[in-house]
Design a protein around this nucleic acid. Structure first.
Lengths: 343, 343
DNA sequence: ATGCATGATTTGATCGTTCAAGTTAAGGAA
DNA sequence: TTCCTTAACTTGAACGATCAAATCATGCAT
């Protein structure tokens, strides 16, 4: 097998010029039917494939899309990012794009990574995860005219006309979770969330509040907030349950928190409360449907990560192909509730 | 900011030729000290960065390393692959390489992906995971002279001189787990593994066998094998425990199996055995130290994934830099035991 | 002084593709 | 017939880097 087949080899074998080969492949409509077929036959025969480096040099497009891979955060919620990357890679391949990874810490670290990558491998676009209030990354990219999509709304900019994005309707998720618990007869349903100010966290809390309000229930004293990890979750859940003996169910902003809450809910009476009143069953619902949730039978809100990823990529591909006009610029997808033993 | 700074711009500004700029950056030793400094100053000042596409065209090196991202397998063990990718990306950056993702199913699917990638983006090397008996991928790459490393031994080729690899000593892990259980007074320790024939699975079983043999204990009737998932693990564990009432501990080939075993071990007596004899505590040890293990307090063997990844990358980088001779071609790293409540 | 390594730098050529402009031939209107 | 248009294809240049070979000093032995 002749190793490197260039466009010139094909041209020679087909008896046409280089440019005609290029046209047959990239702009078929300008080449006569018969010629085109002959060229394509030779392409197959010789096994010609474009050299991306050469093409990139001429056109300035790398057909690379850059995405960050996180250090597995708390180890539980981490899987979301990985499922996302997988979906991205898969959809990218169908559009003849490839995913290039990078790592970074914090907005500024990530901006530095942007700069590095743009200088070197020149990805055609970025895919950002976990947008947040005052996200510096999106501004940086916008200022420089670098195409990108985000998984996550532009929280600081409610109209969100600045850049394309895809997100999952977190409020709808906790709303559904809360309604589910109501339908099972729970009346006092608490919420275990993150400190106020995170777009995602506030959104998830809002869904819970809204569902209770819809049936005329208030939320006073029914929620608490803490850092997103198991131990803090356990502690916060204990405090909340101790403070209000009538709470029979908890909606949580993450599976990590939910796991902490479960430690309390499932522990035998004396363990979670020295005060002596006996163990009461507390239903718990988590968020993200991580492997841990599945493993321990935790009811959880599942995000359609695969769809988010493919939507992100398609928005990008469309935009990169030149279509900036009519198509939808953003997408809010509904999550679904996966019911298990915990509630 | 002038957008594209080329090597010619730097040359002009520094009053030297293009080639001297290139030399100052890539072969500093051939450039006079003073000239070099002047050039590098201008490089900084203008913010010059090499254009990888152009360099690749001339040198044939892309500074890309391709790795597969898996669909989260059973969801529990999946996290290993992701930790690996993260480590790879991080170390790659320090050597000025980038990780390019691809997906594929099965050896042949992956070989097709190799072919695609080599034709298009021309990665300098591949990193393969999960080597197995009769692995077709390694042959394909070797035949074509494509550099690669594997996370996993060349199981079919015990001398393993064919390609560089990094692996974790699974037998040492189960050996340690078994010794740990012995030290806690357990005498009859079972093993829950995968069907014979998988290199990894057989290796892990061997460590358990060896540890028992070392203290004069046999293994007859103490192990069973099943598919790597929670439900099969639960079923197999139940069978094993029912069959031998003296078993007080189980070493498992994965956290998935261990989780299944825990369902049996932790269930109240009647639940796991209708025959009426009461619940006995069974210690369980898993393998991989996944987030699930941490979440549920499962003792597990932890692989040093980060080190595996960085070692893989350094082996590759060294080899790509031309050093094929003296350096070690393979590496077997020891795992460690993470002790938790389960055993 | 002459010749000759050696060090430092420069000069074309080239990698494989696509862009932009040029050529050729055929058809149609004047 | 002559000129113009259009379709189909070809030609030269360029993208930005590095390789290979050439040039130019400089110092040193003869």
């Amino acid at each position: 097998m002749a190793d490197k087949v260039t466009i010139a080899d094909v041209a020679r074998a087909a008896g046409v010029s280089r440019q005609t080969v290029s046209n047959a492949l990239n702009t078929p409509e300008v080449v006569r039917e018969e010629t085109r077929r002959r060229v394509l036959d030779v392409v197959d025969e010789l096994g010609y494939r474009v050299n991306h480096a050469a093409r990139q040099m001429r056109t300035g497009r790398s057909r690379l899309i850059a995405a960050r891979i996180d250090p597995e955060q708390d180890g539980i919620n981490g899987s979301v990012g990985d499922r996302f990357l997988h979906g991205l890679t898969q959809t990218a391949a169908t559009e003849d794009y490839r995913v290039l990874l990078y790592t970074a810490h914090g907005d500024d670290g990530e901006i530095a990574a942007f700069d590095d990558l743009l200088g070197a491998h020149e990805p055609d676009a970025f895919v950002l995860m976990a947008t947040h209030h005052g996200d510096r990354r999106t501004n940086w990219l916008t200022e420089r005219g670098v195409p990108f999509v985000t998984f996550g709304r532009p929280w600081s900019d409610p109209d969100g006309a600045n850049h394309p994005w895809v997100d999952v309707d977190g409020a709808a998720g906790t709303d559904a979770a809360t309604r589910h618990l109501l339908s099972r007869g729970h009346r006092r349903i608490g919420f275990l969330g993150w400190p106020e100010g995170s777009g995602v966290g506030d959104d998830r809390r809002e869904g819970w509040r809204r569902a209770l309000a819809d049936v005329g229930l208030g939320t006073a004293g029914l929620f608490t907030e803490t850092e997103d990890d198991v131990a803090p979750g356990e502690h916060a859940a204990r405090t909340l349950l101790d403070g209000d003996p009538e709470i029979t169910a908890l909606v949580c902003a993450s599976d990590s928190l939910a796991l902490g809450a479960l430690h309390v809910a499932r522990a035998p009476g004396p363990a979670w409360h020295a005060g002596g009143h006996s163990h009461r069953p507390v239903a718990v619902v988590g968020f993200d449907d991580t492997p841990v949730a599945k493993a321990i039978g935790l009811t959880s809100v599942r995000q359609p990560i695969g769809e988010v990823a493919s939507s992100c990529l398609r928005l990008l591909a469309h935009r990169l192909a030149g279509g900036a006009g009519a198509s939808p610029e953003y997408l809010l997808l509904p999550p679904s509730l996966v019911v298990r033993a915990s509630g």
